[in-house]
Computed example of a mutant assay.
Amino acid sequence: MYDVLIKNAKLVSGEMTDIAIKDGKIAALGTITDVTATRTMTLDSQVFVSAGWIDGHTHCYPNSPIYNDAPDAIGVTGGVTTVIDAGSTGADDVDDFAELAKACQTEVRALLNISRIGLLRQNELADKNDIDLPLAKQAVERHPEFVVGLKARMSGSVIGENGLAPLKSAKQLQHDCGCLPLMVHVGNAPPTLEDIAVLLGKGDILTHCFNGKPNRILTPEGKLRSAVKDAMERGMLLDIGHGSASFSFSVAEQSIEQGILPDTISSDIYCKNRINGPVFGLAHLMSMFFTLGLSHEQIIERVTANIAKALRLETKGQIVIGCDADLTLYEIEQTPVTFTDTEGDTRTGEQRFAPLAAIVGGNLTLTDRGHTHHVFHS
């Protein structure tokens, strides 16, 4: 007896399969007949099913005074099954966040800010006394499932006069915590991106990779900075982290034209840029990458398998027997849609991802569109 049986699931490849769920896990795949299930859902032919979408850079700690949101508002209601909060909390408040996350329908994980205060203020790395590595390590050890990595915001407005010292502390903490993934925010210099990239490699994620600031991955001539290229060759990954100030169509187009693709697509979403734009939600930004030349398969890979691998979420990101039953049901709608980068530049696309439902551990949540469309019949 299965808990849920999904019939006629259309995978990204176009292949059709049935998916059986039991005890929150994917239990069987293929053509499944002559079985009983508590709930059977037969999908319409236009509905795609992928591994659950993972937004690898969000700000969804509700009690953060600067950037905050409700995990479910950026998660299951938009087809996203897992959200990763990127540094809203540090050692001082991660316990509170971990407790709040338990009540969410969306799976919530956190990258621990290397500053103990998290985003209590904009310059959380300006006071060296707030970087307490033993305290941070204890926080990681208290929450081995919840804290999946570390976050260091390395821009001038954040670090004050501390230069590269916070990043060096982050790398030390990363080592002390069993080489946890480390996401590094790049913004305005100092420090320069070249100086940051020299310290990065395998296990590190450079977020805001297509920002349009002078401290961008491209030289003024439009070529990839050699220090960034070297870091990528050492294993550093590129993450979008669109946000309110960190994505340029010009930089993205120049980069992609040279074959420099982001490894992961994330939103850097919080309540203001969700409601007022330009982010709106992960699906909106995924759709934007159609206009930038990525395929359906490439886009889905960057919000499922790639981010799951980057953050070592071993039971997520794949439709494989034994993995978590986290699935996103969606259509690809053919309609004109306008996208705006963080510099006010726009592009118009002709199609978009339209999420219908999120299944987390076998539990179904319909999106607004899912409620109004007959996406399946039981």
Rank of each mutant, 00 (worst) to 15 (best):
G118V: 01
S169I: 00
M154D: 09
R225M: 11
I256N: 03
A283V: 02
F290Y: 11
L237N: 02
T219Q: 11
R347Y: 03
N123C: 12
L180Q: 13
H284E: 07
V49K: 05
I359N: 06
V94E: 07
H59Y: 02
L364G: 07
D263S: 11
H374P: 03
A98T: 07
E233Q: 12
L119Y: 06
V158W: 02
N68S: 12
D34P: 03
R369N: 10
G259N: 09
G293P: 13
V35K: 11
C323A: 12
L218S: 08
N8Y: 12
L224Y: 10
T81F: 03
G349Y: 02
E161W: 04
L150M: 13
L282P: 00
S250H: 09
Y61E: 02
V108F: 01
V47D: 01
S64H: 01
V279W: 00
Q105K: 13
E257I: 10
R347T: 10
L193N: 04
K151F: 03
S88P: 09
T365V: 14
E257F: 09
D195K: 08
P278D: 05
A91P: 01
P62S: 15
A252V: 10
K10S: 09
S246I: 00
I32S: 09
Q172I: 13
I256E: 03
G241Y: 04
C104I: 01
S157K: 15
K128D: 14
P336I: 06
E99Y: 05
L366I: 07
L199M: 11
H373M: 15
C177L: 11
R39M: 08
V83G: 01
A91F: 10
H296P: 00
N68G: 03
L135I: 10
P65F: 01
F339C: 07
R234M: 08
K202V: 01
F146Y: 12
K128S: 14
Q174I: 10
R121E: 15
H59R: 04
F290L: 06
L182K: 05
G361I: 02
L224Q: 10
D34V: 11
K171Q: 15
R225W: 07
